[in-house]
Simulated scan of single mutants.
Amino acid sequence: MRLLVLGGTKNLGRHVVEAALRDDHEVTLFNRGLTNPSLFPDVRRITGDRADPGALAAGEWDGVIDMSGFLVRDVSLSAAVLRDRCGHYTYMSSIAVYASKTAVGMTESAPLLDWPAGAPEDHFTMDLYGPSKVRNESLLTATFGPRTAAVRSGFVIGPHNPDFGNWGWALAHGEPLECAARPDQPIQYIDARDLANFLLHLTADRVPGPFNAVGPTQTLATLAETWRSLVPNPPPINWSPTVDRFHLPHNGSNDGTFHLNNTHALANHLHLRPAHETAHDYLTWIQAGNTPPEPPH
């Protein structure tokens, strides 16, 4: 497959490119060339900006995986250029698209957030994150019809990714795990490698529709004990740290976001590895001398 990856040199995008190269796909990267410019030296690279995607007008691809689609303006421009130049367009969306934050068991057909009247399509703020993802999904469906898929995930754990990086760092250095969320806070996450494989599968096989790409629900206390079991005599968990890296309300007003139904994704070949394997591999990566990236907020 001739694959175009928008982004592809940081966090989850690295895993997508690695998975594509592993499966012998012909990869082209399109990005600004500012992040890890020496990564994947043998991969074709087009340097450009999402706000001016004209550099893509001369190419054709079997599939596109969009890892950098945040601004509505940028996704709209890319979609217009690629509409007749790609077979399938897979968009990296988010679990932040859902209107309810408390409903349990939401499927992909649950109500989504509205776009705020008068909101700018060329400027990003955190309060527009969820609505922007919804709007981008909608415009891609309008452009590509059944030739597009939207993958909704939340926490993504793995080497080169910031989520739970403080836990891996703490365990590697004999420090307490810090968790400002309550112990019974429900959580769903996905291993970056599993998510990358799923994105690639949907694109290569041209599978349409939105997907909740998340793992099973568990509590943060349960997950923390899984991570602590990896080292002998682990320090205790600090449930009241100075820095809050989870930003989750203690009153349960966001709990439904982590009780999503992932049946549709599992039925379409989302494969999830055990929690202890993800934790082990992340810890091993840090012990090898790597530093987790800082979270985006």
Rank of each mutant, 00 (worst) to 15 (best):
P208L: 13
P53V: 07
L200E: 06
G289P: 03
L171I: 11
A192N: 04
F40E: 05
L29Y: 02
G59D: 08
P37F: 08
A267W: 07
P241Y: 08
Y89C: 07
R135G: 00
A142I: 05
F124I: 14
G130W: 04
F198L: 06
V17A: 04
S94E: 03
P186M: 09
T257S: 15
L171P: 04
D42P: 02
T102V: 13
L220K: 02
H201M: 10
A57P: 01
D74A: 13
L39K: 05
S132G: 11
F30H: 01
A96V: 01
P183R: 08
D114R: 10
E175G: 02
P111G: 01
P208T: 12
Y98E: 10
M106D: 00
A20R: 03
I157H: 02
N212A: 09
H160L: 09
F246G: 11
H160M: 13
T219K: 12
E294D: 05
A110E: 02
T284W: 06
D84Q: 14
V16H: 00
R152E: 11
E225D: 12
T263F: 13
L220D: 03
N262V: 12
P293H: 02
S132L: 04
E26I: 05
L199K: 01
W227R: 05
H269D: 13
R147C: 09
S76L: 13
